[in-house]
Design a binder for these strands. Structure first.
Lengths: 159, 159
DNA sequence: CCCCGGTGATTGACGTGTCAATTATTGGCA
DNA sequence: TGCCAATAATTGACACGTCAATCACCGGGG
């Protein structure tokens, strides 16, 4: 890493050239990685990573069913996004939506048989790809550093 | 980090629970970070990060103009994606498209005055946000580790 | 009891991304 | 010269994401 020039550092308001280079490499790499994972999942199983997240959450839920809001919280999405996604998944027969008995405003999302089957078939290939492209690409120290980075960045984002 | 159980490690085909947790934290954090940066840029300057990338590349090009293919390579996008994006940017008056004199198939993308103005106004807030949410959230060691991670992951992706 | 603010969820509009197909043109080669 | 595979770029269809608006229903204070 080269030294910062006085101009670059003045007031510490803007990143230096080196900092900016690391930022770009970091975010572009993370993006490429996600795109590659998504593309493999899609071509091997006809599921998107969004589908996978939803099916994972439903699979782990008691009775394979969840209130829409819980599901949104579980996968960390806005409700509107989930609603659109569920509409597409329902059209493909992966999930069903039912009225909620205890709250007439609410909806329950139920894992459909086709969804369960698709999820079972997707798990191993997907986890294998994560190992290949992420875990095995890093030394144990780098893997630990990745967790460390995530924690530090998340702390700042949460402020 | 807890020890791996024999089951989790057998054959080293699938990630362990700990590896998977780090993966999720890493990719979700990177995603949240990008979303936050995009959201700030959008609300402060009415530019998307895609707009910003295109305007940055054009600003640095001689005569503020580039062949469509060069531009695609410069920002690392597929040509189709660029084509769609340029159509939207042209509609907003940020860029213009002209025929290429030396190759009738080709198109030249030209930075329009409105695009130059928008880009000038966006640079400082955007770089400030990158410093705040990324650079300043990390120790120097963590920042170096981020660059290191990107290099290792990119090497695997390039295979 | 009724009103009304808050909540669960959906919808519509629009920007963004990918894939496959298409159009127009180029350049090399028989 | 004339053919044709490769190339530049666009297009259409569709999945995905966000924002703001909307609808229906809940529940508590007058």
């Amino acid at each position: 890493m080269t030294d910062d020039t006085p101009r670059q550092r003045r007031g510490r308001q803007l990143p230096t050239v080196d900092e900016l280079r690391i930022w770009r490499e970091f975010i572009e790499t993370a993006d490429t990685l996600r795109a590659e994972l998504a593309s493999r999942l899609q071509s091997e199983t006809s599921l998107s990573t969004g589908d996978y997240s939803v099916l994972l959450a439903l699979s782990e839920a008691p009775d394979q069913r969840m209130r829409s809001s819980e599901l949104a919280a579980g996968v960390g999405w806005e409700r509107s996004r989930l609603s659109h996604h569920l509409a597409r998944m329902e059209k493909r027969g992966l999930i069903r939506r039912e009225e909620c008995a205890t709250d007439n405003r609410g909806a329950e999302v139920v894992l459909a048989p086709a969804g369960a089957t698709a999820f079972r078939g997707a798990t191993v290939p997907h986890l294998r790809a994560i190992r290949e492209l992420f875990v095995d690409a890093l030394t144990p120290e780098q893997l630990a550093a990745a967790g460390d980075l995530a924690t530090a960045l998340r702390a700042r984002l949460a402020q």
